[in-house]
Design a protein around this nucleic acid. Structure first.
Lengths: 240, 240
DNA sequence: GGCGCAAGCTTGTCTATACAAGCCTGATTG
DNA sequence: CAATCAGGCTTGTATAGACAAGCTTGCGCC
């Protein structure tokens, strides 16, 4: 069997990947079906076993296949689809639209963690944590209210930053490179204080993004980001 | 140099990955820093170049490093963080909560694509497309209004499905395995008709998820999913 | 001083070989 | 008939060697 023409300039491992993915997407190999073994593919496609192995490993990492040592390679069950959304630095986002970014710091201090904050940061109640409340503006109009708790162990110098010139996002990216994150997204009606700060009516729908991040084995931050629904959206596009 | 103890039972390529990631997360190698070459790592760590290569390639695929043939390997600039959110089959989600799922089909028909729908599906205006409008219930309460357009070329049998027993999501997962997806998430105020169908007041905030998917090179579907804010949220957690 | 070229170092890719570890199936024994 | 074991086939991992292709740097020449 020969591989499809037009792909012969691609590296061999990529040709193997394309060949198998093509069979899967066309329905020739439905989910659960057993994919030919590495040795079978080696013989039929004419590439080395290590080349075939690389192709199968990468397709497995991308979610298309599952492999079990000794048993074989199978087409993966369709797992829940994902939305991959970019969570960018709000300042960069605004500036790239050609708009003016500014911010106002309402609070930046040490606090003693209550049971809720402690739980969210994976710390003991009573531990000292950092707490900031910052309003972000686009062309003078409020676009995000950022209420953030930070674990001092992960970013000890958090309080000494100038968050008028950099955002907490920028600072934490450098101070505590992200290795794990959790997000919850909801549509909410803002409480009166939040509505006031965002300069919207209490009936305006808001997009709430709650996120926790970890760096290595260390909890870094818990943030509640509230956005007026008509001034902010999340967007993402991904491919396998 | 020896690798950290306690990791010596891991495969060699994993030990190399852990070693490098540890240096990155500790800040020893800040973003932009050049990582020792494959040959240097081969000599210092005592593994083969192919083992080192596999570790570096995987860290690159995971977003930690960037590599340029001839130039070297560098610690990646922190790219925009991502939220990875599961978009599950609404019926499964409801049933796994121990609740009762049901649905009502308001519309399921062929239509001629207007310029908007055609644009969203990457088709010519005037092309025939499928259009369904379905309300999903949890314990008798509306939880999602699904307004969906489907490209017949990708799912020719769409109209002949019984969407009381399976959801369009389930059907399309099998008929057109997803290879690419795009999402937009917003908080909106529903129009009167949508509010009526969802049994909410027109002032209730709603979470709107707009998604387009592709299978291979073929556009599959464009869906607008509207959810009462107090009855639905998106959640996701990922790690590198 | 600038440009071009070559050498050296880098990553990208491929193959062959080897051994470890796990799964499955068939045969044998009790 | 059931259980166990062995053989064969599978994937997992590692290494050595090879060649291609790209980048960087230094040197020589104009």
């Amino acid at each position: 069997m020969t591989l499809p023409q037009g792909e012969n300039n691609a590296p061999a491992y990529q040709q193997v990947k394309d060949h198998i993915l093509d069979r899967v997407l066309k329905g020739d190999w439905p989910e659960g079906a057993r994919v030919p073994s590495e040795n079978e593919l080696t013989r039929s496609l004419g590439f080395s076993r290590m080349t075939v192995n690389r192709a199968l490993r990468e397709l497995t990492a991308e979610g298309w296949l599952t492999r079990t040592q000794g048993a074989g390679t199978f087409v993966a069950k369709s797992r829940p689809q994902s939305a991959v959304l970019e969570i960018r630095n709000i300042a960069d986002e605004i500036r790239e639209r050609g708009h003016e970014y500014s911010s106002q710091i309402y609070q930046l201090r040490v606090e003693t963690a209550g049971s809720v904050e402690a739980g969210l940061l994976g710390l003991e109640e009573g531990t000292e944590i950092f707490h900031s409340l910052i309003l972000h503006f686009e062309n003078g109009q409020p676009v995000q209210l950022e209420d953030r708790f930070v674990n001092p162990a992960a970013a000890p110098d958090y309080l000494s930053q100038n968050f008028r010139s950099i955002t907490p996002y920028e600072y934490l990216m450098k101070a505590a490179p992200l290795s794990e994150a959790e997000h919850v997204i909801q549509a909410i009606q803002p409480d009166p204080e939040t509505a006031r700060l965002l300069s919207i009516s209490p009936q305006s729908p808001c997009l709430l993004l709650k996120r926790r991040t970890w760096s290595g084995d260390k909890s870094v931050t818990y943030a509640r980001l509230v956005h007026p629904g008509d001034r902010f959206q999340l967007w993402g596009r991904f491919s396998s």
